[in-house]
Design a protein around this nucleic acid. Structure first.
Lengths: 195, 195
DNA sequence: CAAATGACAAATTTTATTTTTTGTCAGTTG
DNA sequence: CAACTGACAAAAAATAAAATTTGTCATTTG
């Protein structure tokens, strides 16, 4: 990852950060390593990001946006889906995406897990976006509720075991899909009955 | 904690382990420290427990039994409760007990969290006991299901955010009780409608 | 002879030391 | 003069050396 143009951009730095984390792993990646990958001095990176923490948060935000939120927005928009089935498809997608990246992009998933753990603000913003999608789906799908946001949040929290990174090691279990189905069956009724 | 009689017992060793963990914290407690507390050689402890791991697992098992499972068994037996309300009281108790000890007995809660993390077998056995209680309550309460164990497990997993130690930091939020209520409202319907 | 001790090697942890990294900034460069 | 460099101090991490802990077992004790 050499910088191609002569103006260093945030985007280039984030791309180099991802690459370096994939190569060395989360724990072993320093700002110096990222600078080396870009063939610039590490001081240049501090012109774009106030701190290492901010850099990793920006990388995580972008990763979440691209890998998780964008595909979810597609499901949210999908007009072939409706009502409870739409909510289910959305949560199912969320669960599958998390599981997919936990397995197939371990290093960046570890970055996401670590940043989540340390930045309550970032994760709360991210959850806010998902809750927004769920509210949208539920309202459009005629799933009325006295407290749409609270209902949306409840769906998110009731399925936490299947998408929260702290539970990632449980996703290896052969029973995980059946367990999700069973939890979903429980929730489904509550979604139909307006609270 | 001096050993009172002249025969060293597992019970004494476990009591001394708890005491030492409360005094020094989980990370700083060694088998040697426990032996010192009992005024015996550390070799004597190895006569009763194969390893440090086994000692800490035994201490955790006892802690879970006494602090969590025993009070839950009381709720399970409570004949003044019935049906969905009984299940709710049970899970509510589980949630409150976990929260209580996370706050009021930090050191031993940390022991439980660490051992949980490292001993899949112990935690799976413990979950088995809770699922057993829930099945008992659900069957006695006329909450019929094609798969009683799977239904019971689903209730447990859907509320994981409120009792799994990995989520302990979230329990400090002022919104946690409202969030539990909302999740419970979602689940309640599914419990009434037999799956 | 059952229970505990204490000496021991191997593994782990702690502490001390050295090296690297982080973050700043005055100075350089195109 | 905006973008970057490179030198620097402070903080953090890696390494090396020392001390403690773990686990075993032959020996001692009651």
């Amino acid at each position: 990852m050499e910088k191609s143009s002569d103006v260093l951009t945030k985007e280039q730095i984030i791309a180099a950060t991802e690459e370096t984390i994939r190569r060395y792993g989360m724990a072993k990646t320093s700002v110096t390593d990222v600078a080396k990958a870009l063939d610039v001095s590490h001081g240049s990176i501090y012109r774009h990001f106030k701190s290492k923490t901010e850099l990793f948060e920006a990388a995580t935000e972008q990763w979440l946006e691209e890998k998780i939120v964008a595909p979810l927005a597609d499901v949210c928009r999908d007009s072939s889906l409706h009502g409870v089935g739409h909510v289910q498809a959305y949560i199912q997608t969320l669960v599958r995406l998390k599981r997919h990246y936990a397995r197939e992009d371990e290093a960046l998933f570890a970055m996401y897990a670590k940043v989540s753990d340390e930045s309550a603000e970032l994760i709360s913003k991210h959850i806010g976006r998902i809750v927004g999608h769920l509210m949208d789906i539920m309202l459009r799908g005629g799933l009325k509720s006295d407290h749409p946001e609270r209902s949306a949040r409840a769906v998110f929290y009731a399925t936490a075991r299947f998408h929260h990174p702290a539970h990632a090691y449980e996703w290896k279990s052969a029973a995980i899909d059946a367990e999700f189905s069973d939890v979903w069956a429980l929730i489904e009724q509550g979604l139909k009955t307006n609270d």
